[in-house]
Design a protein around this nucleic acid. Structure first.
Length: 565
RNA sequence: CGGGGCGUAGCGCAGUUGGUUUAGCGCGCAGCGUUUGGGACGCUGAGGUCGGAGGUUCGAAUCCUCUCGCCCCGACCA
């Protein structure tokens, strides 16, 4: 491709509102262009990268036994009602209505569609296992699209679904997918961390995410450097220390005028927050829930939501708290009746805590579980933090940020039961098909690859996903034969099967080199009067500082060799 | 949805106490010339419903009302 003919141009400056590295570089390099919030055009260079990633994914899926489908974007809302996700995912569904008033959603994912297909085509254990997949645009009306390709409302995703006769089969497939994913990420030159994750609205168990470690990542990962434990914060657990504050003492009331937050209480009574008990109020599917946790810990709302088995969980509003008759700032479960009380297990492992007294400006000391209050249930609902102890090995947990590029789940029969996707076994018995599903953010992976492969000048594409392999950069000068040599090299390279971006513009060296660095093509070949004196070209890898002089007669073979290996 | 910020030429920005503003600057773009190993220079030129609608006023990019869009933080998130 000749740069002079390229539709898009590079720019010196990024849009003011782009502040993630990959977003800035993709826009500056002319690879993507924003149309609306979270909606982008892939320009020719960007599209080539996307296609390369897609093809790597395709190859690895096929190798794992997958079969590719193309499934509808327009999906009747009825099937979403049937799965129950019309409600549980209502806030991200794009809805539309056709001329006959039939309601559709723009597919945010395709479990419903594929399960319905399985119900129709898979009838016997002889038809199993199956591994259909698709690489397609998906639509989600994200509350907050952000960071370019990182979180769009329209984005490219690979989804694979496994169908097996039993869990043993599922386990095999699941493991195969883990390997396929690792192959994909390795080939795209991104390093990932596999972490335990919450499965969210999709349901199922054994959910794991593949995280690209990056500062710009939206997710926080808690991991143990000693034993490899790693989990998304939404799922992470840590060992809570027993806080022994002596033998249980009698409850004692203290006046705490103007004191309400844990910090204030702790400071006022000269105790550490670990010796306090915090009350937090939630509304779960419309019901008031009273949550207690040790004062220094934070409630993990995802854990809480899972414990409560509710679909809608949020902090109670001030009005709801007032209506419930709870004294905000001085509430405690002691002596309280009529509420669902959920306790984090931390409060059962501490003695003589400070809690609210359920009357204004008053707290009580020496609260002990279960002597002074009972909970409807006790569970781990705390957010794990860096510095906590690892539950596996006691090591000190660390925190890092990651970009979720893959998420795999064991769905079991959640969808097959809803859509009556059943098979007949050897004995004629009927069973729901055991399912797994395996998502990968293809467009997001493109951004993540840049987050991990760039410098202050621009992108450094890993060879397998680079839009072109070779950047041919002649520095023209009248009276030299740079032009003819470059044209000849361009033809030769292409004849040798190389993908070449040919900077045939008559710009100054600075412009051309800076664009080359920005675009990030891995192998650069410079032709100039200077190199021609030695019948050579200059060869440089984008990833390295050093350039070398290579005879013209050898350069094509050298490039070819590098690309093969 | 809560908080904050921003919409002026393709991109980045200035101008916003209403009046020399005929709305500027840099990059980019077009033409001519000089340049050519790390974003060269000169000259000439094109390019604007100042996000949109309504209002106030002799006069609005500037003030008021409504509205649309975009970004960031939070909430949310497969």
């Amino acid at each position: 491709m000749r740069i002079s003919r390229l539709f898009a141009k590079t720019t010196r400056e990024a849009p003011a509102d782009a502040d993630t590295i990959s977003h800035r570089l993709l826009v500056r390099a002319g690879m993507i262009n924003q149309l609306a919030a979270g909606v982008y055009t892939y320009l020719p260079l960007g599209l080539r990268v996307l296609h390369k990633i897609e093809n790597i994914v395709r190859e690895e899926m096929d190798k794992a036994g997958g079969q590719e489908f193309s499934m509808p974007v327009l999906q009747p809302v009825e099937m979403w009602q049937q799965s129950g996700r019309a409600q549980s995912m209502s806030d991200v569904l794009f809805n539309l209505t056709d001329r006959r008033e039939h309601k559709f959603v723009l597919g945010p994912t395709h479990e419903e569609v594929i399960t319905q297909l399985a119900a129709r085509y898979v009838q016997s254990y002889r038809d199993l296992p199956q591994l259909p997949y698709q690489i397609q645009v998906k639509f989600r009306d994200e509350p907050r699209p952000r960071a370019g390709l990182m979180r769009g409302r329209e984005f490219i995703m690979k989804d694979a679904y496994s169908f097996d006769v039993d869990e043993a089969g599922l386990d095999i497939c699941y493991q195969k997918m883990v390997e396929a994913y690792q192959n994909v990420f390795k080939r795209c030159a991104v390093s990932t961390m596999i972490v335990d994750a919450d499965s969210g609205a999709i349901g199922g168990k054994d959910s794991r995410e593949f995280m690209v470690v990056a500062e710009s990542g939206e997710d926080e990962i808690i991991n143990c450097p000693r034993c490899n434990y790693a989990a998304n914060t939404e799922k992470a657990v840590s060992a809570k220390a027993r806080i022994d504050n002596g033998q249980p003492l009698p409850i004692e009331e203290v006046a705490t005028p103007g004191i309400s937050t844990i910090e204030e209480v702790a400071a006022f009574l000269k105790v550490s927050p670990v010796h306090t008990l915090k009350a937090v109020f939630y509304t779960a599917d419309g019901r008031f829930v009273f949550v207690v946790i040790r004062g220094d810990l934070a409630v993990n709302e995802i854990k809480l939501k899972n414990q409560l088995h509710c679909t809608d969980l949020r902090l109670a509003t001030d009005a709801e708290v007032r209506e419930a008759g709870v004294v905000a700032g001085a509430a405690s479960p002691v002596g309280l009746k009529g509420f669902k009380v959920v306790a984090d297990d931390s409060v059962t492992m501490a003695t003589n805590l400070v809690a609210g007294a359920n009357k204004p400006a008053t707290h009580i000391k020496n609260v002990n579980y279960p002597r002074d209050f009972k909970a409807d249930f006790v569970a781990d609902i705390a957010t794990a933090r860096a510095g906590d102890k690892c539950v596996n090995c006691g090591g000190k947990l660390a925190a890092t940020r990651g970009i979720e590029v893959g998420h795999i789940f064991k769905l079991l029969t959640r969808y097959s039961e809803k859509f009556n996707a059943v098979y007949t076994d050897e004995k004629g018995g009927s069973h729901p098909i055991i399912m797994g599903c395996y998502g990968m953010g293809v467009s997001r992976l493109m951004a993540a690859a840049i987050e991990q492969n760039h410098d202050d000048k621009g992108i450094i594409w890993p060879l397998p996903i680079a839009p072109y392999q070779v950047h041919l950069c002649p520095l023209y000068r009248a009276g030299s034969n740079v032009a003819e040599t470059a044209e000849k090299l361009y033809a030769d390279f292409q004849a040798a099967g190389l993908e070449v971006l040919f900077d045939d513009r008559e710009d100054s060296p600075g412009v051309k080199f800076n664009d080359a660095d920005l675009l990030g093509i891995p192998l650069r070949v410079t032709v100039s009067p200077r190199t021609l004196e030695k019948n050579s070209v200059e060869f440089k890898k984008r990833s390295e500082k050093q350039a070398e002089i290579v005879p013209i007669s050898e350069i094509a073979a050298k490039l070819k060799g590098l690309i093969k290996s």
